[in-house]
Write a protein that binds this DNA or RNA. Structure first.
Lengths: 224, 224
DNA sequence: ATGATACTCGAACGCTTGTTCTGTGTCAAG
DNA sequence: CTTGACACAGAACAAGCGTTCGAGTATCAT
């Protein structure tokens, strides 16, 4: 007989994990203990429970005891753990950024992007995130291309070095720049060193619309 | 009493849909009929079942009868429809690209990224996608920064204008360039017009490792 | 040999949960 | 007013499902 002697994960553990993932993907809900047993050639529910307990101790699984099908994979992100971020519109030099209404429901929005929470940087899992599609090449000095999707977080506090979407009154446009606080105001630094920074005096109004937490670029289209 | 007279979706239907989505996001499994009733102020399980039936007829919900918590939203993409792409390593000038072994299991990989299928460009839903983390600034002329994650598709055929990962024998390095077929060979065009293209003669060997279908940049880190 | 450990089975128990049936009040059409 | 569709409530039933317990087998160290 095959023996494991409690050293880590065995073949049967893996088979169960794979089945749970597969079942969850197909049915959108976890399997029952008995279903796991059937598909993994385990005749007794207690044995499945036995393995499930071990997987839970290994930290690979979470269980809601007493709840039917109350299990979930916790490995990395068990599929299904993603944020629906509304695409509020386009960001373009000379145009203001549209602001999401308070009653906005991302689930009924026509334009949304789904972002896996595992990809979100510093646990920006707040629901107030929003996305903008970049239009034009005006942000090319910030390594952001035409058509890119930027995920933004409404700015409450901005730290030095973060990329922010700002409304520049003097230029009458919205752009993405790196933000730095200086002694006599603020410095908005393009990512490309070849471009000069924009200095904002303390007296001038500075509207920070949000800070960029992620950039997504799809490469399907042609390039001239 | 509030009456609806069977015209589409009512307030209570919406409340139930929202609760299911919310519950699913939090618990990773659907709620029970009784749980729906409690959180939607419905005292009878039969009434919940009554609404669930209607939602199913509207095509907004699917149900596995007789199965506990056997329901799923079918709206757009009810959370959970994403691809797990293995991160094979880093791409770096002077280093070869690691190739995924055939028995590679993305579910047990230590390093993966989850991409919503709704974000994938031209239905590149093949499971042979892989990801690389860019190291260094060598690809900065392709608008790809240090730390970016590029999603690649193994190249079988490459069309003009697509960005590909190529191994340059003469330079002994791997880079990302736009690909063009010319009369006497191939032209590898940097995204930045300030840089000159690299011409490859037909006689020279050209190893295309894959073409880029997506770029993801997290913005958590500081910038000098 | 002997005990400990790992693993497996089967069955019974009891809570969870979906289903169904009866009944009530409202409202519009006939 | 009667009728019927509609929106509910409550209770009871049956199946689904997690849990627990007793017992059996194989491997290994002592």
């Amino acid at each position: 007989m095959m023996v494991r002697k409690s050293k880590g994960i065995g073949e049967r553990h893996q088979k169960i994990l794979d089945f749970i993932a597969s079942y969850q993907r197909e049915h959108k809900h976890p399997p029952s203990i008995r279903e796991i047993g059937e598909h993994c050639d385990i005749s007794s529910t207690s044995v499945v429970n036995y393995y499930l307990d071990q997987l839970e101790k290994e930290g690979l699984l979470e269980r809601d005891r007493k709840i039917s099908r109350g299990m979930r994979l916790v490995n990395n992100s068990p599929l299904g753990d993603m944020l629906r971020v509304p695409v509020m519109g386009v960001i373009q030099a000379g145009e203001p950024i549209p602001i999401p209404p308070s009653d906005f429901n991302p689930f009924t929005a026509e334009d949304t992007v789904d972002i896996a929470t595992s990809l979100m940087p510093t646990k920006e899992k707040g629901k107030d995130l929003f996305a903008l599609q970049v239009q034009g090449d005006s942000m090319i000095d910030a390594m952001i291309n035409d058509g890119d999707i930027v995920i933004l977080k409404p700015a409450q506090e901005v730290r030095n070095g973060e990329m922010v979407a700002v409304w520049l009154d003097e230029r009458n446009e919205t752009t993405l720049k790196y933000f730095y606080k200086e002694k006599d105001g603020f410095r908005l630094q393009p990512a490309n060193p070849a471009y000069k920074p924009i200095m904002i005096k303390k007296t001038e109004p500075l509207q920070i619309k949000g800070k960029v937490v992620m950039v997504i670029r799809k490469m399907e289209r042609m390039v001239a």
